[in-house]
């Protein structure tokens, strides 16, 4: 009993350490974003929102947020749609070459981002499509679809295969069954995939940097600011990005968890 206790205490300590390791830089960055000193030193100066004001006074930053917003929402819609279609194909059909189909569908995240960015640039430049907002969108859809597919595929793995047949049996056509049964069943996963892909796209730097041209996304403009000067503006914009993506990811997780708990009780 006491051995169990000390073990769990040790484990808890370890978890706390891991969290400290992960979050210290982020928390530090946030603290210095509201600190009046120009350089990150201790002791701290006084509280200020000066750096946030400076950031938002810069029209380039506004532009970047606008581009990032358009890109991540469009990407989320397209990637979730493609992810759903891929996952459903996998769930519903058996065909030769399915393993190949699946590995191709899941391939993009395994490619190093720099290579991906370069390849995208090479291709898009050749067909005169680089440097536009849609170039970023296209590249990010490639990158994000597998995440959407993975999330939705997990949900489809829980569906009782009789549900779809039951819908047909009750007079629903293929499309109707999809609309009335498959999509409602997958709705939490679809919402979750939407948030997740939006977060991935909003965060992504390397590929966006290669293909964006003059349409800079937020991560790209961060690098630009960093190259120019090293005041806490960076910390301010970094904190905003972090909060945005964290919110999206946490939301994705919450939606998925709440529904799963609800419906595991429903049983098979």
């Amino acid at each position: 009993m006491s051995q169990d206790n000390s073990k769990s205490l040790l484990l808890r300590g370890y978890v706390v350490l891991v969290f400290i390791f992960v979050f210290t830089p982020i928390v530090t960055s946030f603290i210095f974003s509201v600190n009046s000193d120009r350089f990150p030193t201790i002791p701290l100066g006084h509280f200020t929102t000066h750096w946030y004001e400076t950031i938002f006074a810069d029209p380039d930053v506004w532009d970047a947020f606008r581009v990032s917003g358009i890109v991540s929402i469009t990407v989320a819609i397209l990637a979730t749609f493609i992810g759903f279609c891929t996952a459903y194909t996998d769930y519903r059909y058996n065909f030769t070459g399915k393993a190949l189909y699946l590995s191709l569908a899941l391939l993009p995240p395994t490619i190093p981002l720099v290579i991906m960015g370069l390849a995208m640039l090479a291709l898009l430049a050749r067909i005169n499509m680089s440097g536009e907002i849609y170039s970023i969108i296209v590249s990010h859809v490639v990158l994000c679809s597998p995440f959407a597919m993975a999330v939705i595929r997990m949900r489809l793995a829980q569906i009782n295969p009789d549900l779809e047949s039951a819908a047909w049996n009750l007079g629903a056509s293929n499309w109707r069954a999809m609309r009335e049964v498959i999509i409602p069943f997958c709705r939490p996963a679809i919402a979750s995939a939407f948030c997740l892909t939006a977060a991935v796209s909003f965060d992504e730097f390397a590929v966006a940097w290669f293909v964006s041209g003059l349409n800079k996304t937020v991560p790209v403009i961060i690098l630009e600011i960093l190259q120019g000067n090293t005041d806490p503006q960076i910390n301010a914009i970094g904190s905003i990005v972090f909060i945005t993506s964290m919110t999206l990811v946490v939301l994705a997780q919450l939606i998925l968890m709440r529904k799963t708990i609800n419906q595991t009780a429903t049983g098979i």
Partner: peptide, 10 residues
């Protein structure tokens, strides 16, 4: 159905 196949979201 053996599994009843009731729609859990309705």
């Amino acid at each position: 159905w053996q599994s009843l196949a009731l729609f859990p979201f309705l």
